[in-house]
């Protein structure tokens, strides 16, 4: 598989939006732990956005906004990055969003847990340039959690 090179600030821009959405979902989910709340549509939205970047990253709205509005205001990137690590991280995010969706029906606490994990990873990515999913890839593989 040929590696595609991307501006590393693109995924970080997306992660900043994701962290705002997931923090809102977490805050709502913990203050209304039983039954339907505004956290549900937020988790659905996150699941849609993560699926979008897993299945069609080129058409993702984050990417388009970054290209149109953010990228022209930044200086040229100091280096480009392989697109696969952030792609893998999006899959991890999708996994957690799906966990939240399952929570709608079985265990509402999972909604808060899922939003919390998504926030934790997205915030570290956006503001500390630390991609949790990418870093953990090897560790997860060693223990046979991902193939």
């Amino acid at each position: 598989m040929s590696a595609e090179l991307i501006d590393p600030r693109g995924p970080r821009f997306g992660a900043a939006i994701t962290s705002a959405l997931s923090l809102a979902a977490f805050g709502i989910a913990v203050s209304a732990p039983e039954g339907f709340s505004a956290a549900y549509p937020l988790i659905v939205l996150l699941a849609v956005l993560f699926s979008w970047s897993v299945f069609s990253p080129k058409t993702h709205p984050y990417g388009l906004v970054f290209k149109k509005l953010v990228r022209p205001r930044l200086s040229a990137p100091s280096e480009l990055e392989d697109s696969r690590p952030p792609q893998f991280a999006q899959k991890v995010g999708l996994g957690f969003a799906l966990l939240g969706l399952v929570g709608f029906w079985f265990a509402p606490v999972l909604v808060a847990v899922s939003a919390g994990f998504i926030f934790f990873a997205a915030f570290l990515n956006a503001f500390f340039n630390f991609c949790l999913g990418c870093q953990m890839y090897l560790g997860l593989k060693r223990f046979g959690i991902v193939s």
Binding site: L23, G27, F120, F123, F127, F128
Partner: peptide, 20 residues
């Protein structure tokens, strides 16, 4: 609300720990 602030604080602490 407090839990959300707690999560934010925990994440900030983890990020700073990582940087250091």
């Amino acid at each position: 609300m407090y839990l959300a602030l707690g999560l934010l604080g925990l994440t900030l602490a983890a990020g700073i720990f990582y940087k250091v």
